[in-house]
């Protein structure tokens, strides 16, 4: 019997895979003030689930394609008459609604929507684990490769242009990475909580970081603790796992900011 036969081990490995990709990506989401962007992409994933079931393709592929289309649509519509938050709100909620309606048309399959809204990390199998880790490796490889260019484009588009970095291309790369993470995470924490796993570890890491790189690494550590603590906690208290993970992350966020407040207070 191998280690992977234990569902708890699989769950923790799946969570850690997600965190490795989501934590550094989440830093960009925080720096670029794209919190809503992650939300919108995640909501669109439900439409992807519906289409995947209707056309009988893998959920992963369906979610990936729809999340990607969503990300590209928002990027290209940005700055054409609507404020970004309005645009994202319209697209997020309408794609969620269309997704729910589309799911009701799928006959013959009993769809457990709850599984996609909240995920079920304890049900992760070996093949899911492979998908998650391949996705995580792709996303972190992409971020590692483009790191400096992404940072420059995040700082200022004109500065990027003058240094030979195309801000449009970097935005596209981020959108692609975001779509990949959403597709990977739908099984682990579900669409409603993906944005939380992007944002909260990064936000909790901010008070401890002096450079962007360190913030990404600290976010990974905090995310890892949340995954571990959340899964163990859910087991101990018999609570739903995905939400418990996010609760632990949120507590860590509060703790980090308490430390920051105390530190500035004692520095005076």
């Amino acid at each position: 019997m191998s280690l992977l036969d234990d569902f708890m081990v699989r769950a923790i490995l799946a969570g850690l895979g997600l965190v490795i990709a989501a934590a550094p990506l989440g830093c960009f989401v925080v720096w670029r003030r794209m919190a809503y962007f992650g939300d919108a992409t995640a909501h669109a994933a439900i439409l992807g689930v519906a289409l995947a079931l209707a056309f009988n393709v893998s959920i992963f592929a369906g979610v990936l394609v729809v999340a990607l289309i969503m990300a590209l649509a928002v990027s290209s519509l940005n700055g054409r008459g609507f404020a970004m938050d309005t645009l994202l709100g319209v697209m997020a909620h309408s794609s969620l609604a269309f997704g729910l309606v589309a799911v009701s048309f799928v006959h013959g399959v009993r769809v457990d929507l709850m599984a996609y809204l909240f995920g079920d990390i304890l049900a992760v199998g070996r093949s899911d684990l492979a998908v998650i880790w391949v996705g995580a490796a792709l996303v972190s490889g992409l971020l590692y490769w483009r790191w400096s260019a992404l940072l420059t484009a995040t700082l200022n588009p004109d500065l990027a242009m003058a240094s030979g970095v195309s801000p449009k291309r970097e935005q596209l790369i981020l959108s692609l990475a975001l779509a990949l993470v959403v597709a990977v995470a739908i099984k682990v924490v579900g669409t409603l909580l993906i944005a939380a796993m992007l944002l909260i570890p990064a936000a909790a890491a901010r008070p401890f970081a002096r450079t962007p790189e360190r913030m990404a690494v600290i976010a990974m550590v905090i995310g890892g603790i949340a995954i571990f603590g959340g899964i163990e906690g859910a087991f101990a208290f018999d609570t739903p796992t995905g939400p418990t993970i996010v609760c632990v992350a949120a507590l860590l966020f509060v703790l980090a900011n308490l430390v920051r407040v105390l530190r500035t207070y004692s520095a005076r």
């Binding site: 400096s148 995040t154 700082l155 003058a162 450079t211 962007p212």
Partner: peptide, 26 residues
């Protein structure tokens, strides 16, 4: 060409030392 832009806004959520800033993108 060396380019100095108009006032550059850096989001307070982005930790960045002067030294690190100089190494962007190369």
């Amino acid at each position: 060409i060396g380019y100095v832009p108009q006032k550059l806004h850096i989001d307070p959520t982005l930790p960045l030392t002067v030294r690190r800033f100089l190494s962007l993108p190369k």
